[in-house]
Design a protein around this nucleic acid. Structure first.
Length: 305
DNA sequence: GACTCGTGGGA
DNA sequence: TTCCCAAGAGT
């Protein structure tokens, strides 16, 4: 088999090597089990958007127990979805996942669609998540490009220390070219790329000693030059509207019903910023004003008093 | 494209 | 302690 042809470009074998490694080293994550189904995969992808695996796993288990299919979630309130989201961060994702479940019920009879176009049309599903579902839930051959894959390809294939800004179309083309022809093998390779990026080819302190791609890695072959560091100084979190939104929502999450405005006033001293944050939450559809100068999670059953 | 949007843990 | 950053999407 191997050796029939001279290998000018060893990384024609990248997918095969990565997959072989994956077979031995993949984490045993619950949404990778067949029982998780397409809904389980979809929920995991929503939760994993910018949230680490270790924090997602318990939340995912609770979520799937409570809402084992899209219809179950769609039948419950947005407020409960926001509460169950807990402290995963970016609570708008809970809102979108709920809306996504509703759309799946309405448009697809409660079955997570397997067509890329249908998935892309759903709330909260973008280029990455749509392809992740087609590949991981339905075994299709689609380029699944997340931050891990972009970094892995930038290094191993292009020899660059880091991936630049996401350029969706180009990234999709580049990764697609790396996939095996067969659907099932391609889907497996996609999972393998992500896992390699997450566990070995990490952003900081990559574990090149343990990397199966070491021999042919273009970055390693050029001496593993250092990157230029963070491109721009990210905004500090402390003192941002984001933090204030988080504080406000935490209060509402932990309350069973509408909360007096005076209670929300306690979370942040500056009224101007506090009001702006609250207005933003309302605009986003996470919070609604209730009677008697009170506020509640959106979709909360209103309590008369 | 540039921004915005939470949260918590590890280096 | 500070700072990076972790399976993105929407505007």
């Amino acid at each position: 088999m191997a050796g029939c042809l001279p290998v000018d470009q060893p990384f024609l074998d990248l997918a095969r090597i990565a997959t072989a490694w994956f077979d031995e080293n993949a984490r045993d994550l619950p949404w990778r089990h067949a029982e998780a189904g397409a809904w389980g995969v979809l929920v995991s992808e929503f939760m994993l958007q910018q949230t680490p695996v270790v924090r997602v796993e318990p939340a995912w288990r609770a979520w799937m127990t409570r809402w084992p299919d899209p219809a179950a979630l769609a039948a419950d309130t947005v407020a409960e979805a926001i509460r169950a989201w807990g402290r995963l961060g970016y609570p708008r994702r809970a809102l979108r996942l709920h809306a996504c479940a509703e759309a799946i019920v309405e448009r697809h009879g409660g079955v997570v669609p397997d067509r890329l176009d249908d998935l892309l049309a759903l709330p909260g599903i973008g280029a990455y998540t749509a392809r992740a579902v087609t590949a991981f839930a339905y075994g299709q051959r689609q380029p699944v490009v997340d931050t891990n894959v972009r970094r892995l390809v930038a290094r191993a294939v292009s020899g660059r220390p880091d991936a630049g800004p996401a350029t969706t179309a180009a990234d999709l083309t580049a990764v697609e070219a790396l996939l095996p022809v067969q659907d099932r093998l391609a889907a497996r390779a996609s999972a393998a790329f992500m896992e390699l990026g997450a566990l070995i080819c990490t952003a900081r302190n990559p574990r090149c000693q343990d990397c199966p791609l070491w021999t042919g890695c273009a970055w390693r072959l050029t001496g593993s030059p250092a990157g230029s560091g963070p491109m721009r100084r990210p905004q500090r979190y402390a003192g941002t509207d984001r933090q204030v939104r988080g504080l406000l929502l935490a209060v509402l999450r932990e309350s069973s019903g509408p909360v007096p405005a005076a209670r929300l006033d306690l979370v942040w001293p500056e009224a101007r910023q506090r009001d702006r944050a609250l207005a933003g939450l309302i605009t986003d559809g996470l919070v609604v004003a209730a009677s008697g100068h009170r506020y509640a999670l959106a979709g909360e059953a209103s309590h008369r008093s």
